[in-house]
């Protein structure tokens, strides 16, 4: 029967699609697991003891990013490149998390803002869509904003750990970031909502600096120079 045949044929299409999605989901699960491991590693800097071990933790994190590159490499093989946006939703979340982790890592190493090029290199993917599996600029920015939130927490905890100069540096960094974001013309999208959270991070960090200033705790470290 003709209708039956047609629907059997269509079922073939649907099955193929579902298989691709199943494959993607599996790789993404592994990626999420690795991302969580990197997070656990980097989050330990918030412990009082963690502040001294930042360099060694960064080294370990860089190693874990090798695994990430392998998994992302595998992910690319699961679908043809022009269907990136068809399946985007599956990996968008983890990709933003990875961008955040790369940004946090680079900040801990150099106290500077990671560029999209650096993130892409750490993850072993592309900047430009045409060249293959890439990092959308929105996903990069989302990652940067997640980091900003983590930094406001870091400012608080560095005071607890007795480091009174770090909050000032974080404050300068976050203010620069805020000015940068104000250049963007964000629509009412998820990114905009995330950006709205940035002003709370800015305020939180300013209050930390205030608490230090009013007690004269910012004075002694003024000579710390370039760190």
């Amino acid at each position: 029967m003709s209708v039956t045949e047609m629907f059997s044929y269509i079922q073939g299409f649907l099955s193929a699609d579902q298989e691709i999605r199943e494959d993607i989901r599996k790789v993404v699960q592994v990626l999420e697991q690795t991302a969580r491991e990197i997070l656990t590693l980097l989050q330990s800097v918030h412990q009082p003891s963690g502040f001294k071990e930042i360099p060694s933790k960064c080294t370990k994190a860089r190693e874990l990013f090798c695994t990430v590159r392998t998994h992302l490499g595998e992910l690319k093989t699961k679908f043809s490149v022009e269907q990136y946006y068809r399946f985007h939703e599956h990996w968008r979340f983890v990709l933003q998390r990875l961008a955040f982790l790369a940004a946090f890592l680079v900040y801990l190493e150099t106290e500077s803002l990671v560029t999209r090029e650096e993130v892409v290199q750490i993850l072993g993917i592309e900047v430009v869509r045409e060249n293959g599996f890439h990092l959308d600029v929105e996903d990069y920015l989302a990652g940067v904003l997640i980091m900003a939130n983590e930094l406001s927490r870091l400012a608080v905890n560095s005071v607890t750990a007795g480091d009174y100069s770090r909050p000032l540096r974080i404050s300068n960094f976050i203010n620069e970031l805020d000015s940068g974001f104000r250049l963007l013309n964000l629509k009412n999208d998820p990114l905009r909502k995330r950006y709205d959270g940035l002003k709370y991070d800015v305020k939180k960090i300013e209050e930390v600096v205030y608490d230090l200033s009013i007690r004269g705790l910012t004075k002694e470290q003024d000579t710390r120079g370039e760190m």
Binding site: Q33, L39, T40, Q43, S44
Partner: peptide, 21 residues
Amino acid sequence: PFQVSMFLRQIHDGFSYIGNT
């Protein structure tokens, strides 16, 4: 407070390790 905060951080890290699994 400091003991609680260290302990809580450990639990928090534990939960982020488990994540959405």
